[in-house]
């Protein structure tokens, strides 16, 4: 069963694959990222892939792969245009991803990630100083 049978007639049938198929816009971008304990960390604001040579024939070069989830400053440039310098990118390594479903689950604790420093900063400098913030609500 395909999306639009009428105009698919001229198209070759879709490829099938052994592994999980992810269309970046549809299955990855803007998805919630959870840490290994299910605590929200951030969203997938963009992806970093291995470099593709410009103006060179690609025949024979291996297909690019995803190396990092990008977050933070990338969101602004994705929405409003432009491109942040590579040094300003906040990265979560692809190798830390445990599962990709409706949410992206990491195999590590949020505390060790660069991506969660603003949360830690607000917690340590503001929220932790207000009495009662360490307890469960009653």
């Amino acid at each position: 069963m395909t999306a639009n049978d009428e105009d698919d007639i001229s198209l070759a049938p879709p490829d099938s694959y052994a592994g999980q198929v992810l269309d970046a816009q549809l299955h990855l971008l803007d998805r919630q990222v959870l840490d290994t304990d299910g605590v929200p960390v951030t969203t997938v604001d963009d992806l970093e892939i291995t470099d593709i040579p410009i103006d060179e024939p690609l025949r024979g070069t291996p297909a690019p792969t995803i190396i990092n989830i990008l977050t933070g400053a990338t969101l602004g440039t994705r929405i409003f245009g432009g491109r942040p310098p590579s040094s300003r990118l906040t990265r979560i390594p692809y190798r830390d991803i445990k599962d990709i479903g409706v949410v992206v689950t990491l195999g590590v604790d949020a505390e060790v990630l660069d991506a969660s420093w603003p949360e830690r900063w607000v917690r340590d400098h503001i929220i932790a100083h207000i009495p009662g913030g360490h307890h469960d609500p009653e």
């Binding site: 592994g19 297909a63 190798r95 830390d96």
Partner: peptide, 10 residues
């Protein structure tokens, strides 16, 4: 990879 196989651009 460590947890998942590499995601290859198809």
């Amino acid at each position: 990879g460590q947890l998942l196989a590499e995601a290859r651009l198809a």
